[in-house]
């Protein structure tokens, strides 16, 4: 299920642009049109806001799409991994450690929790060949346990990293928050790193083999247990980074925040094509831009609905998302 961004060279390669290029063309055309209708200042600002949205969502969605693509688990607990990362960092920072160190430790802790859950829950269920539905129930259960354990210790009131969320970078008539820019750039860099890692490293190739055919991968001597464990660790670490960046740049969070953005993460992952890291990024960009652009024409109250509508429309045209492969009948 892990798919590469560009289609492998094929006889029709030159006659067909890769989906990412198509998407880029569509976005640029739409932007030009918006700039013409609404003026470049408004259109540009909405676009920047959309990209900021996209950065938050895409990074959170990468872990989700890896787990779904490789392990076929609809991980309803993923949003709560974002929360876990952010809260562990908050608590460590509260003890006086510098924020970057707190963040690094929180990433390690979250990855360790993800690995421990694999050992305690997912691996035994894998051995029993549990159905997708039971995995769903277990994921719902883990989501509740994580969210409310965090709340038990931290309380449900809002918390903040206390970073400066007021400072902004001004680019001519446009602006965006400094921390928003940091989150966006870090998100894109990490997603590209994950994409490259999947493609070029030995472990990445093993993961892709797992997603294509778990049984076959096992027969060919791949250490499936190790690769699966590593997938969870990567997903946990990415979730923690996403959660920390989100919390720092948005300003305030409470223990519900991860579960509340979970649906946006799913939307981005599915829109991009499940299992594809770059897909999560492009899915995030499409949703983010659509939502913010919609505010140029509609009341902002419609933003969330616009995101879901775009998802449904995309699936009607591209049933497997932007990067989804044409279904191979088995």
């Amino acid at each position: 299920m892990i798919e590469e961004a560009s289609a492998p060279p094929s006889p029709r390669w030159h006659s067909r642009l890769p989906p990412a290029a198509w998407l880029a063309l569509v976005i640029i055309a739409a932007l030009a049109l918006l700039a013409g209708v609404k003026g470049p200042v408004e259109a540009g600002q909405a676009t920047i806001n959309g990209l900021v949205d996209a950065g938050y969502v895409a990074l959170g969605a990468v872990g989700l799409t890896l787990i779904f693509g490789i392990l076929r688990i609809i991980n309803f607990a993923h949003g709560d991994f974002l929360t876990l990362g952010a809260y562990v960092a908050l608590m460590i920072a509260a003890s006086g450690l510098p924020i970057w160190l707190a963040a690094a430790l929180a990433i390690l802790v979250t990855a360790a929790v993800a690995a421990a859950l694999d050992k305690l829950v997912w691996e035994p269920m894998r051995r029993m060949q549990t159905s997708t539905l039971q995995l769903l129930l277990a994921a719902i259960g883990i989501a509740l346990v994580l969210r409310y354990t965090i709340q038990f210790f931290a309380g449900s009131q809002v918390r903040s990293f206390g970073q400066d969320i007021l400072s902004a970078v001004n680019l001519g008539p446009w602006h965006l928050g400094t921390l928003q820019l940091v989150a966006l750039l870090a998100g894109i860099a990490l997603i590209v790193a994950v994409g490259l890692g999947l493609r070029f490293t030995a472990v990445g190739k093993q993961m892709r083999a797992l997603s294509d055919n778990m049984a076959l991968a096992e027969v060919t001597g791949i250490d499936t247990r190790g690769a699966i464990r590593l997938t969870w660790i990567v997903a946990g670490a990415l979730a923690a980074i996403a959660g920390i960046l989100y919390a720092a740049a948005v300003g305030t969070i409470n223990p519900n925040f991860g579960s509340l953005i979970l649906l946006s993460l799913f939307t981005a992952a599915v829109l991009g094509g499940i299992g594809n890291a770059y897909g999560a990024l492009l899915g995030g960009i499409v949703i983010g831009l659509a939502q913010e652009w919609s505010t140029l024409f509609l009341n902002a109250r419609w933003k969330p609905a616009v995101g879901f509508a775009i998802l449904i429309l995309t699936l009607l045209v591209l049933p497997r998302g932007i990067f989804g492969r044409v279904p191979a009948r088995t």
Binding site: L137, G141, I142, L144, L146
Partner: peptide, 10 residues
């Protein structure tokens, strides 16, 4: 509640 769901599903 969450723990019960996890344990029962396993």
């Amino acid at each position: 509640v969450g723990l019960t769901l996890v344990v029962l599903s396993m």
